[in-house]
Design a binder for these strands. Sequence first.
DNA 1: TGTACATCAGTGAACGCGCGTTCACTGATGTAC
DNA 2: TGTACATCAGTGAACGCGCGTTCACTGATGTAC
Lengths: 208, 208
Amino acid sequence: VTTRVRNPHGEGSRLRDELIAAAGRVLAAAPDADLSLRAVAREAGVAAPSVYLQFADKTELVGAVIAHYFEQLREVVVNAIATAAEPVDRLRAGCLAYCRFGLERPGPYHVLFASEAPVAHVLGRFGDPDDAGTRAFATLIDAIRDCMTAGIARPGDPFRQATLFWSAMHGYVSLVQLQRGFPWQPVDEFVDDLITTFINAPADPDRQ
Amino acid sequence: VTTRVRNPHGEGSRLRDELIAAAGRVLAAAPDADLSLRAVAREAGVAAPSVYLQFADKTELVGAVIAHYFEQLREVVVNAIATAAEPVDRLRAGCLAYCRFGLERPGPYHVLFASEAPVAHVLGRFGDPDDAGTRAFATLIDAIRDCMTAGIARPGDPFRQATLFWSAMHGYVSLVQLQRGFPWQPVDEFVDDLITTFINAPADPDRQ
DNA sequence: TGTACATCAGTGAACGCGCGTTCACTGATGTAC
DNA sequence: TGTACATCAGTGAACGCGCGTTCACTGATGTAC
Protein backbone atom coordinates (compact mmCIF):
# COMPACT_ATOMS: atom_id res chain seq x y z
CA VAL A 1 0.00 0.00 0.00
CA THR A 2 2.82 2.34 -0.96
CA THR A 3 1.88 5.85 -1.94
CA ARG A 4 2.21 6.55 -5.61
CA VAL A 5 4.58 9.26 -6.81
CA ARG A 6 2.93 11.75 -9.08
CA ASN A 7 4.26 11.72 -12.64
CA PRO A 8 6.48 14.65 -13.63
CA HIS A 9 5.12 17.61 -15.52
CA GLY A 10 4.27 16.76 -19.12
CA GLU A 11 4.41 13.03 -18.40
CA GLY A 12 0.85 12.54 -17.23
CA SER A 13 0.19 10.08 -20.02
CA ARG A 14 2.48 7.59 -18.32
CA LEU A 15 -0.57 6.87 -16.20
CA ARG A 16 -2.11 5.27 -19.28
CA ASP A 17 0.39 2.44 -19.28
CA GLU A 18 0.27 2.20 -15.51
CA LEU A 19 -3.48 1.67 -15.74
CA ILE A 20 -3.15 -1.03 -18.38
CA ALA A 21 -0.56 -2.76 -16.23
CA ALA A 22 -2.82 -2.43 -13.18
CA ALA A 23 -5.67 -3.94 -15.19
CA GLY A 24 -3.41 -6.89 -15.86
CA ARG A 25 -2.87 -7.42 -12.14
CA VAL A 26 -6.59 -7.13 -11.46
CA LEU A 27 -7.30 -9.71 -14.17
CA ALA A 28 -4.68 -12.03 -12.74
CA ALA A 29 -6.18 -11.75 -9.26
CA ALA A 30 -9.82 -12.20 -10.35
CA PRO A 31 -9.82 -13.89 -13.76
CA ASP A 32 -13.56 -14.50 -13.95
CA ALA A 33 -14.88 -11.14 -12.84
CA ASP A 34 -15.51 -8.34 -15.29
CA LEU A 35 -13.03 -5.50 -15.15
CA SER A 36 -14.23 -2.51 -13.16
CA LEU A 37 -12.83 0.96 -13.60
CA ARG A 38 -12.66 1.46 -9.86
CA ALA A 39 -10.75 -1.77 -9.28
CA VAL A 40 -8.19 -0.78 -11.89
CA ALA A 41 -7.77 2.69 -10.41
CA ARG A 42 -7.41 1.18 -6.93
CA GLU A 43 -4.75 -1.25 -8.16
CA ALA A 44 -2.91 1.59 -9.89
CA GLY A 45 -2.87 3.52 -6.60
CA VAL A 46 -4.89 6.35 -8.05
CA ALA A 47 -8.32 7.86 -7.42
CA ALA A 48 -11.11 6.62 -9.67
CA PRO A 49 -11.64 9.94 -11.50
CA SER A 50 -7.99 9.98 -12.54
CA VAL A 51 -8.79 7.32 -15.10
CA TYR A 52 -10.71 9.97 -17.01
CA LEU A 53 -7.51 11.90 -17.55
CA GLN A 54 -6.40 9.11 -19.92
CA PHE A 55 -9.60 7.50 -21.15
CA ALA A 56 -12.93 9.00 -22.15
CA ASP A 57 -14.88 6.29 -20.36
CA LYS A 58 -14.73 2.71 -19.14
CA THR A 59 -15.20 1.33 -22.65
CA GLU A 60 -12.02 3.05 -23.82
CA LEU A 61 -10.06 1.70 -20.89
CA VAL A 62 -11.24 -1.85 -21.51
CA GLY A 63 -10.60 -1.35 -25.20
CA ALA A 64 -6.98 -0.43 -24.52
CA VAL A 65 -6.60 -3.49 -22.31
CA ILE A 66 -8.06 -5.70 -25.02
CA ALA A 67 -5.76 -4.26 -27.67
CA HIS A 68 -2.80 -4.84 -25.35
CA TYR A 69 -3.55 -8.51 -24.74
CA PHE A 70 -4.56 -9.21 -28.29
CA GLU A 71 -1.12 -8.08 -29.33
CA GLN A 72 0.46 -10.32 -26.68
CA LEU A 73 -1.55 -13.31 -27.83
CA ARG A 74 -0.60 -12.68 -31.43
CA GLU A 75 3.06 -12.45 -30.51
CA VAL A 76 3.02 -15.66 -28.50
CA VAL A 77 1.36 -17.59 -31.31
CA VAL A 78 3.56 -16.19 -34.07
CA ASN A 79 6.71 -16.92 -32.08
CA ALA A 80 5.58 -20.47 -31.42
CA ILE A 81 4.90 -21.07 -35.09
CA ALA A 82 8.34 -19.78 -35.98
CA THR A 83 10.06 -22.39 -33.81
CA ALA A 84 9.01 -25.25 -36.09
CA ALA A 85 9.72 -26.00 -39.73
CA GLU A 86 7.35 -28.76 -40.82
CA PRO A 87 3.80 -27.56 -41.61
CA VAL A 88 2.07 -29.86 -39.08
CA ASP A 89 4.53 -28.95 -36.37
CA ARG A 90 4.02 -25.28 -37.08
CA LEU A 91 0.26 -25.70 -36.86
CA ARG A 92 0.53 -27.71 -33.67
CA ALA A 93 2.88 -25.18 -32.07
CA GLY A 94 0.53 -22.32 -32.89
CA CYS A 95 -2.50 -24.10 -31.51
CA LEU A 96 -0.67 -25.11 -28.37
CA ALA A 97 0.47 -21.53 -27.81
CA TYR A 98 -3.06 -20.23 -28.24
CA CYS A 99 -4.53 -22.71 -25.80
CA ARG A 100 -1.76 -22.24 -23.28
CA PHE A 101 -2.25 -18.50 -23.32
CA GLY A 102 -5.92 -19.08 -22.59
CA LEU A 103 -5.27 -21.52 -19.78
CA GLU A 104 -2.37 -19.75 -18.13
CA ARG A 105 -3.83 -16.29 -18.41
CA PRO A 106 -7.55 -16.79 -17.95
CA GLY A 107 -8.15 -13.15 -17.02
CA PRO A 108 -6.73 -11.67 -20.22
CA TYR A 109 -8.26 -14.45 -22.31
CA HIS A 110 -11.63 -13.78 -20.73
CA VAL A 111 -11.50 -10.08 -21.43
CA LEU A 112 -10.49 -10.81 -25.02
CA PHE A 113 -13.05 -13.42 -25.97
CA ALA A 114 -15.76 -13.70 -23.38
CA SER A 115 -16.55 -10.27 -22.01
CA GLU A 116 -19.38 -7.92 -22.89
CA ALA A 117 -17.33 -5.70 -25.17
CA PRO A 118 -15.24 -8.27 -27.02
CA VAL A 119 -12.33 -7.91 -29.39
CA ALA A 120 -14.51 -7.13 -32.38
CA HIS A 121 -15.55 -3.76 -30.98
CA VAL A 122 -11.97 -2.69 -30.57
CA LEU A 123 -10.34 -3.98 -33.69
CA GLY A 124 -11.54 -3.09 -37.17
CA ARG A 125 -14.23 -4.76 -39.22
CA PHE A 126 -13.48 -8.37 -40.03
CA GLY A 127 -12.29 -8.77 -43.61
CA ASP A 128 -10.50 -5.43 -43.58
CA PRO A 129 -6.84 -6.33 -44.30
CA ASP A 130 -5.76 -3.79 -41.63
CA ASP A 131 -7.89 -5.45 -38.95
CA ALA A 132 -5.77 -7.15 -36.30
CA GLY A 133 -8.33 -9.93 -35.83
CA THR A 134 -8.42 -10.64 -39.54
CA ARG A 135 -4.65 -10.87 -39.70
CA ALA A 136 -4.51 -13.14 -36.67
CA PHE A 137 -7.05 -15.44 -38.22
CA ALA A 138 -5.14 -15.36 -41.50
CA THR A 139 -2.16 -16.80 -39.64
CA LEU A 140 -4.24 -19.82 -38.71
CA ILE A 141 -5.58 -20.18 -42.24
CA ASP A 142 -2.06 -20.06 -43.63
CA ALA A 143 -0.83 -22.75 -41.25
CA ILE A 144 -3.68 -25.00 -42.29
CA ARG A 145 -3.26 -24.29 -45.99
CA ASP A 146 0.42 -25.16 -45.72
CA CYS A 147 -0.54 -28.56 -44.34
CA MET A 148 -2.87 -29.08 -47.27
CA THR A 149 -0.43 -28.08 -49.96
CA ALA A 150 2.20 -30.27 -48.31
CA GLY A 151 -0.23 -33.14 -48.84
CA ILE A 152 -0.37 -33.92 -45.13
CA ALA A 153 -3.98 -32.87 -44.65
CA ARG A 154 -6.79 -33.89 -46.94
CA PRO A 155 -7.80 -30.98 -49.17
CA GLY A 156 -10.65 -28.68 -48.25
CA ASP A 157 -11.51 -25.08 -47.56
CA PRO A 158 -8.77 -23.80 -45.24
CA PHE A 159 -11.07 -21.04 -44.02
CA ARG A 160 -13.65 -23.54 -42.85
CA GLN A 161 -11.01 -25.70 -41.23
CA ALA A 162 -9.65 -22.66 -39.46
CA THR A 163 -13.13 -21.89 -38.13
CA LEU A 164 -13.36 -25.40 -36.77
CA PHE A 165 -9.94 -25.14 -35.19
CA TRP A 166 -10.71 -21.84 -33.53
CA SER A 167 -14.05 -23.11 -32.25
CA ALA A 168 -12.50 -26.23 -30.79
CA MET A 169 -9.67 -24.34 -29.13
CA HIS A 170 -11.90 -21.65 -27.71
CA GLY A 171 -14.40 -24.24 -26.53
CA TYR A 172 -11.68 -26.21 -24.80
CA VAL A 173 -10.18 -23.18 -23.12
CA SER A 174 -13.46 -21.79 -21.86
CA LEU A 175 -14.90 -25.11 -20.75
CA VAL A 176 -11.77 -26.13 -18.88
CA GLN A 177 -12.08 -22.96 -16.86
CA LEU A 178 -15.80 -23.17 -16.19
CA GLN A 179 -16.48 -26.91 -15.90
CA ARG A 180 -13.82 -27.74 -13.39
CA GLY A 181 -15.39 -31.05 -12.40
CA PHE A 182 -14.87 -32.56 -15.85
CA PRO A 183 -11.89 -34.87 -16.42
CA TRP A 184 -10.13 -32.75 -19.01
CA GLN A 185 -7.09 -34.06 -20.79
CA PRO A 186 -3.92 -31.94 -20.62
CA VAL A 187 -3.58 -29.26 -23.29
CA ASP A 188 -0.98 -30.97 -25.39
CA GLU A 189 -3.05 -34.13 -25.61
CA PHE A 190 -6.08 -32.13 -26.61
CA VAL A 191 -4.16 -30.28 -29.30
CA ASP A 192 -2.66 -33.57 -30.53
CA ASP A 193 -6.15 -35.03 -30.84
CA LEU A 194 -7.31 -31.92 -32.62
CA ILE A 195 -4.45 -31.99 -35.10
CA THR A 196 -4.68 -35.71 -35.65
CA THR A 197 -8.37 -35.95 -36.31
CA PHE A 198 -8.61 -32.76 -38.34
CA ILE A 199 -5.44 -33.19 -40.29
CA ASN A 200 -5.45 -36.95 -40.33
CA ALA A 201 -1.71 -37.00 -39.88
CA PRO A 202 0.08 -39.96 -38.33
CA ALA A 203 1.13 -39.35 -34.74
CA ASP A 204 4.52 -37.70 -34.38
CA PRO A 205 6.98 -40.65 -34.11
CA ASP A 206 9.16 -38.72 -31.63
CA ARG A 207 6.38 -38.83 -29.06
CA GLN A 208 5.45 -41.97 -27.28
CA VAL B 1 -48.04 -4.50 -15.81
CA THR B 2 -50.97 -6.51 -14.54
CA THR B 3 -51.23 -7.07 -10.83
CA ARG B 4 -50.48 -10.58 -9.75
CA VAL B 5 -53.08 -12.67 -7.96
CA ARG B 6 -51.88 -14.12 -4.73
CA ASN B 7 -51.66 -17.90 -4.71
CA PRO B 8 -54.34 -19.72 -2.69
CA HIS B 9 -53.66 -20.94 0.81
CA GLY B 10 -51.30 -23.90 0.87
CA GLU B 11 -50.19 -23.27 -2.72
CA GLY B 12 -47.44 -20.79 -2.05
CA SER B 13 -44.88 -23.07 -3.64
CA ARG B 14 -46.44 -22.38 -7.03
CA LEU B 15 -44.37 -19.24 -6.90
CA ARG B 16 -41.32 -21.44 -7.33
CA ASP B 17 -42.30 -22.38 -10.86
CA GLU B 18 -43.50 -18.87 -11.60
CA LEU B 19 -40.05 -17.60 -10.67
CA ILE B 20 -38.29 -20.11 -12.89
CA ALA B 21 -40.58 -19.14 -15.75
CA ALA B 22 -39.92 -15.47 -15.05
CA ALA B 23 -36.18 -16.17 -15.10
CA GLY B 24 -36.69 -17.62 -18.56
CA ARG B 25 -38.29 -14.42 -19.77
CA VAL B 26 -35.52 -12.35 -18.24
CA LEU B 27 -32.92 -14.52 -19.97
CA ALA B 28 -34.73 -14.21 -23.26
CA ALA B 29 -34.85 -10.43 -22.95
CA ALA B 30 -31.22 -9.98 -21.88
CA PRO B 31 -29.28 -13.08 -22.94
CA ASP B 32 -25.82 -11.78 -22.12
CA ALA B 33 -26.44 -10.29 -18.70
CA ASP B 34 -26.11 -12.32 -15.53
CA LEU B 35 -29.37 -13.21 -13.84
CA SER B 36 -30.27 -10.94 -10.95
CA LEU B 37 -32.65 -11.94 -8.20
CA ARG B 38 -34.37 -8.58 -8.35
CA ALA B 39 -34.92 -8.75 -12.11
CA VAL B 40 -36.51 -12.18 -11.76
CA ALA B 41 -38.80 -11.02 -8.94
CA ARG B 42 -39.75 -7.95 -10.96
CA GLU B 43 -40.60 -10.10 -13.99
CA ALA B 44 -42.66 -12.44 -11.80
CA GLY B 45 -44.62 -9.45 -10.51
CA VAL B 46 -43.50 -10.02 -6.97
CA ALA B 47 -41.45 -8.11 -4.42
CA ALA B 48 -37.78 -9.06 -4.21
CA PRO B 49 -37.97 -10.58 -0.69
CA SER B 50 -40.69 -12.98 -1.85
CA VAL B 51 -38.02 -14.98 -3.63
CA TYR B 52 -36.74 -16.01 -0.21
CA LEU B 53 -40.02 -17.80 0.47
CA GLN B 54 -38.98 -20.37 -2.16
CA PHE B 55 -35.19 -20.23 -2.30
CA ALA B 56 -32.63 -19.88 0.46
CA ASP B 57 -30.57 -17.43 -1.58
CA LYS B 58 -29.70 -16.31 -5.09
CA THR B 59 -27.49 -19.33 -5.69
CA GLU B 60 -30.41 -21.70 -5.13
CA LEU B 61 -32.61 -19.74 -7.49
CA VAL B 62 -30.00 -19.81 -10.24
CA GLY B 63 -29.38 -23.47 -9.48
CA ALA B 64 -33.05 -24.27 -10.07
CA VAL B 65 -32.97 -22.34 -13.33
CA ILE B 66 -29.87 -24.23 -14.44
CA ALA B 67 -31.41 -27.59 -13.59
CA HIS B 68 -34.52 -26.62 -15.54
CA TYR B 69 -32.69 -25.71 -18.71
CA PHE B 70 -30.24 -28.56 -18.49
CA GLU B 71 -33.20 -30.90 -18.58
CA GLN B 72 -34.64 -29.04 -21.58
CA LEU B 73 -31.35 -29.26 -23.43
CA ARG B 74 -31.05 -32.96 -22.69
CA GLU B 75 -34.58 -33.55 -23.96
CA VAL B 76 -34.03 -31.63 -27.18
CA VAL B 77 -30.85 -33.53 -27.95
CA VAL B 78 -32.24 -36.96 -27.09
CA ASN B 79 -35.34 -36.35 -29.19
CA ALA B 80 -33.23 -35.23 -32.13
CA ILE B 81 -31.07 -38.33 -31.93
CA ALA B 82 -34.18 -40.53 -31.87
CA THR B 83 -35.40 -39.15 -35.21
CA ALA B 84 -32.56 -40.82 -37.14
CA ALA B 85 -31.53 -44.43 -37.58
CA GLU B 86 -28.05 -44.45 -39.09
CA PRO B 87 -25.22 -43.81 -36.58
CA VAL B 88 -23.78 -40.80 -38.42
CA ASP B 89 -27.21 -39.24 -38.85
CA ARG B 90 -27.96 -39.75 -35.20
CA LEU B 91 -24.70 -38.09 -34.23
CA ARG B 92 -25.30 -35.22 -36.64
CA ALA B 93 -28.86 -34.72 -35.39
CA GLY B 94 -27.73 -34.59 -31.79
CA CYS B 95 -24.96 -32.10 -32.49
CA LEU B 96 -27.25 -29.94 -34.55
CA ALA B 97 -29.83 -29.90 -31.76
CA TYR B 98 -27.21 -28.95 -29.19
CA CYS B 99 -25.88 -26.08 -31.29
CA ARG B 100 -29.34 -24.86 -32.23
CA PHE B 101 -30.36 -24.76 -28.59
CA GLY B 102 -27.31 -22.64 -27.88
CA LEU B 103 -27.93 -20.28 -30.77
CA GLU B 104 -31.68 -19.91 -30.44
CA ARG B 105 -31.70 -19.66 -26.67
CA PRO B 106 -28.54 -17.78 -25.84
CA GLY B 107 -29.79 -16.75 -22.39
CA PRO B 108 -30.40 -20.27 -21.12
CA TYR B 109 -27.25 -21.54 -22.82
CA HIS B 110 -25.24 -18.78 -21.20
CA VAL B 111 -26.55 -19.53 -17.73
CA LEU B 112 -25.80 -23.21 -18.27
CA PHE B 113 -22.29 -23.04 -19.61
CA ALA B 114 -20.83 -19.60 -19.24
CA SER B 115 -22.00 -18.08 -15.98
CA GLU B 116 -20.19 -17.81 -12.66
CA ALA B 117 -21.97 -20.75 -11.04
CA PRO B 118 -22.07 -23.22 -13.90
CA VAL B 119 -23.78 -26.54 -14.30
CA ALA B 120 -21.16 -28.44 -12.34
CA HIS B 121 -22.12 -26.79 -9.07
CA VAL B 122 -25.73 -27.85 -9.46
CA LEU B 123 -25.44 -31.34 -10.80
CA GLY B 124 -23.52 -34.07 -9.05
CA ARG B 125 -19.84 -34.88 -9.32
CA PHE B 126 -18.72 -35.89 -12.79
CA GLY B 127 -18.27 -39.65 -13.07
CA ASP B 128 -21.12 -40.37 -10.68
CA PRO B 129 -23.60 -42.43 -12.76
CA ASP B 130 -26.48 -40.45 -11.22
CA ASP B 131 -25.04 -37.13 -12.30
CA ALA B 132 -27.10 -35.49 -15.04
CA GLY B 133 -24.04 -34.01 -16.70
CA THR B 134 -22.32 -37.37 -16.81
CA ARG B 135 -25.34 -39.01 -18.38
CA ALA B 136 -25.70 -36.25 -20.96
CA PHE B 137 -22.06 -36.63 -21.92
CA ALA B 138 -22.50 -40.39 -22.08
CA THR B 139 -25.13 -39.83 -24.77
CA LEU B 140 -22.53 -38.11 -26.91
CA ILE B 141 -19.96 -40.81 -26.26
CA ASP B 142 -22.48 -43.49 -27.27
CA ALA B 143 -23.34 -41.74 -30.51
CA ILE B 144 -19.66 -41.54 -31.38
CA ARG B 145 -18.92 -45.11 -30.35
CA ASP B 146 -21.79 -46.32 -32.56
CA CYS B 147 -20.17 -44.61 -35.52
CA MET B 148 -16.90 -46.35 -34.73
CA THR B 149 -18.37 -49.83 -34.34
CA ALA B 150 -20.34 -49.30 -37.55
CA GLY B 151 -16.97 -48.78 -39.21
CA ILE B 152 -17.92 -45.31 -40.39
CA ALA B 153 -15.48 -43.46 -38.19
CA ARG B 154 -11.87 -44.43 -37.76
CA PRO B 155 -11.30 -46.13 -34.43
CA GLY B 156 -10.16 -44.23 -31.38
CA ASP B 157 -11.10 -43.33 -27.85
CA PRO B 158 -14.76 -42.27 -28.00
CA PHE B 159 -14.35 -40.28 -24.79
CA ARG B 160 -11.62 -38.16 -26.30
CA GLN B 161 -13.56 -37.68 -29.48
CA ALA B 162 -16.58 -36.62 -27.45
CA THR B 163 -14.44 -34.07 -25.65
CA LEU B 164 -13.35 -32.68 -28.98
CA PHE B 165 -16.94 -32.55 -30.22
CA TRP B 166 -18.18 -30.78 -27.13
CA SER B 167 -15.31 -28.29 -27.25
CA ALA B 168 -15.94 -27.51 -30.90
CA MET B 169 -19.69 -27.10 -30.44
CA HIS B 170 -19.37 -24.96 -27.35
CA GLY B 171 -16.69 -22.87 -28.98
CA TYR B 172 -18.83 -22.31 -32.05
CA VAL B 173 -21.91 -21.39 -30.04
CA SER B 174 -20.15 -18.95 -27.75
CA LEU B 175 -18.02 -17.35 -30.42
CA VAL B 176 -20.96 -16.83 -32.77
CA GLN B 177 -22.67 -14.90 -30.03
CA LEU B 178 -19.71 -12.83 -28.95
CA GLN B 179 -17.78 -12.25 -32.16
CA ARG B 180 -20.61 -10.97 -34.28
CA GLY B 181 -18.35 -9.40 -36.87
CA PHE B 182 -16.91 -12.73 -37.96
CA PRO B 183 -18.30 -14.39 -41.12
CA TRP B 184 -19.69 -17.50 -39.45
CA GLN B 185 -21.10 -20.31 -41.53
CA PRO B 186 -24.66 -21.43 -40.76
CA VAL B 187 -25.02 -24.06 -38.02
CA ASP B 188 -25.79 -26.99 -40.24
CA GLU B 189 -22.72 -26.34 -42.38
CA PHE B 190 -20.59 -26.10 -39.28
CA VAL B 191 -21.94 -29.35 -37.91
CA ASP B 192 -21.47 -31.01 -41.29
CA ASP B 193 -17.85 -29.89 -41.31
CA LEU B 194 -17.44 -31.14 -37.78
CA ILE B 195 -18.90 -34.55 -38.55
CA THR B 196 -17.05 -34.89 -41.82
CA THR B 197 -13.59 -34.03 -40.59
CA PHE B 198 -13.87 -35.84 -37.29
CA ILE B 199 -15.67 -38.89 -38.53
CA ASN B 200 -14.16 -38.85 -41.97
CA ALA B 201 -17.49 -39.87 -43.50
CA PRO B 202 -18.34 -39.09 -47.11
CA ALA B 203 -20.78 -36.22 -47.48
CA ASP B 204 -24.43 -37.26 -47.25
CA PRO B 205 -25.43 -37.91 -50.88
CA ASP B 206 -28.97 -36.63 -50.24
CA ARG B 207 -27.66 -33.13 -49.66
CA GLN B 208 -26.40 -30.99 -52.46
C1' DT C 1 16.55 37.57 -9.66
C1' DG C 2 11.84 37.76 -8.23
C1' DT C 3 7.06 37.45 -9.01
C1' DA C 4 2.66 36.66 -11.23
C1' DC C 5 0.37 33.44 -13.70
C1' DA C 6 -0.73 29.29 -16.52
C1' DT C 7 -0.41 24.55 -16.94
C1' DC C 8 -0.71 20.17 -15.40
C1' DA C 9 -1.41 15.65 -12.44
C1' DG C 10 -4.30 14.21 -9.58
C1' DT C 11 -8.09 14.30 -5.70
C1' DG C 12 -12.38 14.07 -2.39
C1' DA C 13 -16.99 14.29 -2.11
C1' DA C 14 -21.03 13.44 -4.10
C1' DC C 15 -24.67 11.69 -7.55
C1' DG C 16 -27.90 7.95 -8.72
C1' DC C 17 -28.14 3.15 -9.76
C1' DG C 18 -29.02 -1.87 -9.10
C1' DC C 19 -27.71 -5.32 -6.35
C1' DG C 20 -28.53 -9.32 -2.36
C1' DT C 21 -30.41 -9.60 1.96
C1' DT C 22 -32.89 -8.62 6.55
C1' DC C 23 -36.70 -7.13 9.22
C1' DA C 24 -40.93 -6.21 11.09
C1' DC C 25 -45.30 -5.90 8.98
C1' DT C 26 -50.17 -6.81 6.61
C1' DG C 27 -54.08 -8.98 5.45
C1' DA C 28 -56.54 -12.91 3.70
C1' DT C 29 -57.89 -17.73 4.65
C1' DG C 30 -58.35 -21.59 7.33
C1' DT C 31 -59.20 -24.11 12.01
C1' DA C 32 -60.77 -24.87 17.05
C1' DC C 33 -64.17 -24.29 20.23
C1' DT D 1 -73.39 -19.86 14.20
C1' DG D 2 -70.00 -16.77 15.89
C1' DT D 3 -65.50 -15.67 17.46
C1' DA D 4 -60.67 -16.07 18.66
C1' DC D 5 -56.55 -17.46 16.89
C1' DA D 6 -53.00 -19.65 13.86
C1' DT D 7 -51.25 -20.13 9.45
C1' DC D 8 -49.79 -18.57 5.30
C1' DA D 9 -48.50 -15.53 0.95
C1' DG D 10 -46.56 -11.74 0.25
C1' DT D 11 -44.81 -6.71 1.18
C1' DG D 12 -42.32 -1.96 2.06
C1' DA D 13 -38.61 0.09 3.88
C1' DA D 14 -34.15 -0.14 4.89
C1' DC D 15 -29.13 -1.86 5.14
C1' DG D 16 -24.51 -1.60 3.06
C1' DC D 17 -22.00 -2.42 -1.12
C1' DG D 18 -19.53 -1.42 -5.53
C1' DC D 19 -20.27 0.62 -9.58
C1' DG D 20 -19.47 4.67 -13.54
C1' DT D 21 -19.38 9.40 -13.76
C1' DT D 22 -19.35 14.57 -12.61
C1' DC D 23 -17.69 18.52 -10.25
C1' DA D 24 -15.16 21.87 -8.12
C1' DC D 25 -10.82 21.69 -5.94
C1' DT D 26 -5.50 21.44 -4.67
C1' DG D 27 -0.92 21.93 -5.07
C1' DA D 28 3.32 21.31 -7.53
C1' DT D 29 6.00 22.75 -11.62
C1' DG D 30 6.95 25.38 -15.43
C1' DT D 31 6.95 30.01 -18.18
C1' DA D 32 6.71 35.23 -19.13
C1' DC D 33 8.20 39.49 -17.89
